[in-house]
Amino acid sequence: MSAARRICVVTGTRAEYGLMRGLIAGIRDDDAFELQLAVTGMHLSPEFGLTWREIEADGFPIDERVEILLSSDTPVGVSKAMGLGLIGFADAFARLKPDLVVVLGDRFEILAAASAALVAGIPIAHIHGGETTEGAFDEAIRHSVTKMSHLHFTAAAPYRDRVIQLGEAPERVFLVGGLGIDAIKGLKLLDRAELEGQLDLEFGARNLMVTFHPPTLEPGEAAAQMQALLDALDSLGPETHLLFTMPNADTGGRELAAMVDRFVAARPHARVFTSLGQLRYLSCMRLMDGVVGNSSSGLIETPSFGIGTVNIGDRQAGRLKAASVIDCAPQQDAIEAALERLFSDDFRKGLAGVENPYGTGGATMAILDVLRRHPLSGLLKKSFHDIALATDTGER
Score class of each variant (00 low, 15 high):
Gly298Tyr: 12
Asp314Met: 10
Ala323Ser: 14
Ala317Phe: 12
Gly359Tyr: 06
Glu336Leu: 04
Asp346Lys: 11
Lys321Met: 15
Ser344Val: 01
Pro330Ala: 09
Asn356Ile: 08
Asp327Met: 05
Ala323Tyr: 06
Gly293Cys: 14
Arg341His: 07
Tyr358Glu: 03
Arg341Gln: 13
Arg341Thr: 14
Thr364Val: 15
Val325Leu: 12
Ile307Met: 04
Lys349Gln: 15
Asn294Pro: 11
Ile326Gln: 05
Gly359Gln: 09
Gly361Asn: 05
Ile326Asp: 01
Ala334Gln: 12
Arg315His: 02
Gly298Ala: 10
Asp333Arg: 12
Gly318Lys: 08
Thr360Met: 01
Leu299Pro: 01
Ala366Leu: 02
Glu301Lys: 14
Tyr358Ile: 02
Phe343Asn: 04
Arg319Gly: 06
Val310Ala: 09
Ala337Lys: 14
Glu355Trp: 00
Ala363Tyr: 07
Thr364Gly: 01
Phe347Val: 03
Thr360Asn: 04
Asp314Cys: 09
Ile335Tyr: 06
Phe305Tyr: 14
Tyr358Leu: 02
Asn311Leu: 14
Leu351Val: 00
Gly308Ile: 11
Ala337Arg: 13
Ile312Tyr: 02
Gln316Val: 13
Ala322Val: 08
Ala338Ile: 04
Asn294Arg: 14
Phe343Glu: 00
Thr364Met: 10
Glu355Asn: 01
Ala334Leu: 10
Gly359Pro: 13
Leu339Ile: 03
Gly359Trp: 13
Gly350Glu: 11
Gly362Pro: 10
Ala352Trp: 00
Gly313Cys: 10
Val310Asp: 11
Ala363Lys: 10
Gln332Asp: 03
Ser297Cys: 13
Leu351Trp: 00
Ala322Tyr: 11
Ala322Ser: 15
Ala363Glu: 09
Arg348Leu: 06
Asn311Met: 15
Gln316His: 03
Gly353Ala: 14
Thr364Trp: 02
Ala334Ser: 15
Glu301Tyr: 12
Gly362Tyr: 05
Ala352Tyr: 01
Asp314Lys: 13
Glu301Ile: 08
Asn294Trp: 15
Ala352Leu: 08
Glu355Phe: 00
Ser324Thr: 06
Leu299Ile: 15
Gly308Trp: 07
Gly298His: 12
Ser324His: 02
Glu336Tyr: 00
Gln331Met: 07
Ile367Ser: 00
Ala363Asn: 05
Pro357Trp: 07
Ile300Gln: 05
Gln332Val: 13
Gly359Glu: 05
Ile300Glu: 07
Ala323Phe: 03
Asp346Trp: 00
Leu342His: 02
Thr302Cys: 15
Ser344Cys: 04
Ala334Thr: 04
Glu301Ala: 09
Ala323Leu: 13
Ser296Trp: 07
Gly353Leu: 08
Ala366Cys: 06
Asp327Ser: 15
Gln331Lys: 10
Ile367Glu: 01
Phe343Ser: 00
Gly353His: 12
Met365Thr: 14
Gly350Gln: 04
Gly313Asn: 03
Leu351Lys: 01
Leu320Pro: 05
Ser324Arg: 10
Met365Pro: 00
Gly306Trp: 02
Ala317Arg: 15
Glu340Ile: 02
Glu301Pro: 11
Ala317Met: 11
Asn294His: 12
Val354Gln: 00
Ala329Met: 13
Gly298Met: 14
Cys328Val: 11
Gly318Glu: 11
Ala317Pro: 01
Leu351Tyr: 01
Ile326Ser: 05
